[in-house]
């Protein structure tokens, strides 16, 4: 039985195909792309975006957004640096930073769910606030002297392969996120909340609780990313990861997650992340100027919002021809 989903043009498949095409072209035509070292750089540099994209995808599917993730990451790095300077061991510092991320996410979540504020506004506020705290904590210092085994893990790769060590734990997290979103009742409820919060509430779904969980998880993942960032680049500064939230959101939208909530797949989002990452890598190898790189990213962001809509319209037009067989009477439909 051909399901409507497989008949439709699925944007996440399109993005996956684009990623493969880009990789094939780059292997063939871009000097220096295919060697293991470059590929490990590509993956390593993309990991921060990919890590935050996991909870961000769930958040956007449920109709919310978190713009404060990069600031939370920066704050985690800053606190990590400050505590390290105090002489604390890294094994104590990391749990503290993760807990801090949980608190940051919880604050966002409580402001959104308890006060009913729009997450866009709340997290623009905490974007500034968390970064401000980071600057207070660390000032303009840069902490670089973290234990070498941690730096090696965050920056190194497995032998001579293209796989960074950190890629393996990421794959585990990815698998968890895919299952959570696409195979659990929790994930199912997120799609319902994103598509129609009211209908979800009337179906007995605990909308506020689910959102609070999501914001908290997002804070946790953002702080994990902040720790990884500081170790990967061997530098904890208050302005670490500045602007990362835009890259994450661009990638997630590019991957076909509907900004209005309720639609998308995690596979698409991650394909979007690595498509952007690969593109940036190629442009750097080709000595494309930074300005042009930003321009390309911006154009992609616009396309990413446009693309899925066009794809959906095509599939709706196809479905419409079938749906006419169940003629809908009395439809003062708000669309059309």
């Amino acid at each position: 039985m051909p399901e409507s989903l497989t008949r439709a043009v699925r944007w996440d498949t399109v993005v996956g195909a684009l990623l493969i095409v880009l990789l094939l072209l780059s292997f063939s035509f871009v000097d220096g792309f295919g060697n293991a070292l470059n590929l490990s750089f590509l993956i390593g540099n993309t990991l921060p975006i990919a890590l935050i994209a996991l909870p961000m995808t769930l958040l956007v599917v449920s109709g919310e957004i978190d713009l404060s993730v990069a600031s939370t990451a920066g704050l985690s790095g800053a606190v990590m640096g400050a505590l390290w300077n105090q002489g604390m061991t890294i094994e104590t510092i990391i749990p503290i930073c993760l807990l801090l991320g949980v608190v940051c996410g919880l604050i966002n979540g409580l402001l959104v769910t308890k006060l009913g504020l729009p997450s866009l506004a709340v997290t623009i506020g905490t974007l500034a606030a968390y970064r401000g705290v980071a600057q207070i904590v660390l000032g303009s210092d840069a902490v670089t002297d973290f234990p070498s085994q941690y730096l090696d893990f965050a920056a190194g790769r497995i032998g001579d392969t293209f796989i960074p060590y950190a890629f393996l734990p990421f794959l585990v997290l990815l698998a968890i996120a895919v299952v959570a979103l696409h195979a659990t009742p929790f994930g199912r409820s997120l799609f319902a909340i994103g598509a129609s919060e009211e209908a979800a509430r009337f179906a007995g779904i605990r909308v506020k609780r689910q959102k609070l969980i999501l914001f908290t998880l997002t804070g946790l993942m953002a702080s994990l990313t902040g720790i990884f960032w500081a170790l990967h680049y061997a530098s904890a500064r208050y302005d670490n990861a500045t602007g990362l939230e835009l890259a994450v959101i661009a990638a997630v939208l590019l991957g076909g997650i509907d900004f209005d909530g309720g639609k998308g797949t995690l596979g698409g989002a991650i394909a979007g992340v690595f498509l952007l990452g690969a593109l940036q890598n190629v442009m750097s190898l080709q000595d494309v100027s930074a300005q042009t790189q930003i321009l390309v990213t911006g154009v992609l962001l616009v396309l990413s919002v446009l693309g899925p809509r066009v794809a959906r319209q095509i599939s709706v037009a196809r479905a419409g021809r079938r749906a006419a067989s169940a003629p809908v009477s009395k439809a003062p439909s708000p669309t059309s």
Binding site: S4, F191, A192, A195, S196, E198, A199, F202, G262, K263
Partner: peptide
């Protein structure tokens, strides 16, 4: 339309 159903979701779901 607003409370009973998620209009964009399948009958099954």
């Amino acid at each position: 339309r607003a409370q009973g159903l998620v209009m964009d979701m399948s009958i099954e779901r």
